[in-house]
C-alpha cells in the first residue's frame, strides 16, 4: 500500500513552510513589503476620503485583498517555474508522490503565508493607523468567505500562470508587472471611484477589483457602498466572478501545467 495522498500532501505543506521561512527573500517580500507599503501610504495620505473613512482604512482593505494575490498568485507563479528549472518538479514526477499531494502542499503554504500576512496587516493597521475592525458577525463571515475563496482563486490562477514564464530566472519579471498593474487599476493604491471609467471597466474583468471591493464591504461603513460603481457592494457578483476565474484557472492549470521544460 502506498501512503495516503492527503498525508503526503500535509507533509509537503510542512516542508514548504519550512523552506519558506528559511528563505530570507520570501519572508521579506511576502510579509514585510506590504507593511512597508502600508507605512508609506498610511503616512503620506492622512486625509479622510469620505465621512468616517480614512485613507488608511481604505488602503488596508485593499492591501488585504492584494495580499491574497501576492501570497497565492504571485508567490506560486514565480516559485513553480523556479522549481521547474531546478529539477524539483522532474524529481517529484519520478517518485510515487501524487501530483495532488504536491498541490495540497502548495495550498497549505498559501494558506499559512496568507494568514500571517493578513494578521500582520490588521495588527499594524490597528496599532498605527487607527484601523476600525468590523463589529458584526455578518461582516466577519463575509471576510472569511472572501479570504477562503480569494485564496483558492489566487492559488489556482498562480498554478495556471506558472506555465507562462519560460524560465525560473525570468519568472519574477513576467509575473510581478501583472500584479502591480492590477493593484494600480483595481483600487488598492488609489480610490477606485476616482479612476477613469475605462480603467475601472478593464479592472472589472479581473478578480482583484472584486476582492478589494469585497474587503471594503468588510472594513468600510455601508454608507461607502454608494461610492462603488454600482452604488452597492455587489457581494454576490463578487463571489460569482471569483468562481468563474477559479474555473478558468482550473482548466488552464490542468491543461498546461509543466513538470519539466521539455
Amino acid at each position: 500500500m502506498n501512503p495516503s495522498i492527503i498525508r503526503i500532501g500535509f507533509l509537503r505543506g510542512a516542508l514548504e513552510i519550512k523552506q519558506f521561512f528559511r528563505q530570507r527573500e520570501s519572508v521579506v517580500f511576502t510579509l514585510l513589503f506590504p507593511i512597508m507599503l502600508l507605512f508609506i501610504f498610511g503616512s503620506v495620505f492622512t486625509d479622510t476620503i469620505a465621512p468616517g473613512v480614512t485613507f488608511s482604512q481604505y488602503f488596508v482593505a485593499g492591501m488585504i485583498a492584494s495580499g491574497l494575490v501576492n501570497t497565492g498568485f504571485q508567490q506560486l507563479a514565480i516559485m513553480i517555474p523556479v522549481e521547474r528549472d531546478f529539477g524539483t518538479l522532474k524529481r517529484l514526477r519520478g517518485t510515487p508522490m501524487s501530483p495532488v499531494s504536491y498541490f495540497i502542499g502548495k495550498a497549505i503554504l498559501v494558506t499559512v503565508s496568507t494568514a500571517i500576512q493578513v494578521a500582520i496587516l490588521i495588527l499594524v493597521g490597528r496599532l498605527f493607523f487607527g484601523l476600525i475592525l468590523p463589529t458584526t458577525s455578518e461582516r466577519w463571515i463575509r471576510f472569511a468567505i472572501l479570504i477562503v475563496l480569494g485564496s483558492i482563486c489566487a492559488t489556482i490562477l498562480g498554478i495556471a500562470f506558472s506555465a507562462v514564464p519560460k524560465s525560473g530566472r525570468g519568472a519574477s519579471a513576467v509575473v510581478s508587472p501583472v500584479v502591480i498593474i492590477l493593484q494600480f487599476i483595481s483600487g488598492v493604491f488609489f480610490v477606485f471611484s476616482q479612476l477613469p471609467t475605462w480603467m475601472q471597466q478593464i479592472a472589472a474583468v479581473f478578480p482583484l477589483k472584486w476582492l478589494t471591493q469585497g474587503m471594503r464591504s468588510v472594513f468600510l461603513p455601508d454608507s461607502f457602498a454608494m461610492r462603488e460603481p454600482a452604488q452597492s457592494w455587489e457581494f454576490n457578483r463578487t463571489l460569482i466572478i471569483l468562481l468563474i476565474w477559479t474555473l478558468i484557472g482550473t482548466f488552464f492549470a490542468i491543461r498546461s501545467f509543466k513538470w519539466s521544460e521539455k
Binding site: 522549481e83 528549472d85 531546478f86 529539477g87 524529481r91 517518485t95
Partner: peptide, 15 residues
C-alpha cells in the same frame, strides 16, 4: 518500484 537519479538537480537548497 523504481528509483531515478537524474542528470543534474539544484533543488531543496534550504533543507
Amino acid at each position: 518500484r523504481i528509483g531515478i537519479v537524474l542528470q543534474s538537480t539544484h533543488d531543496a537548497a534550504d533543507l
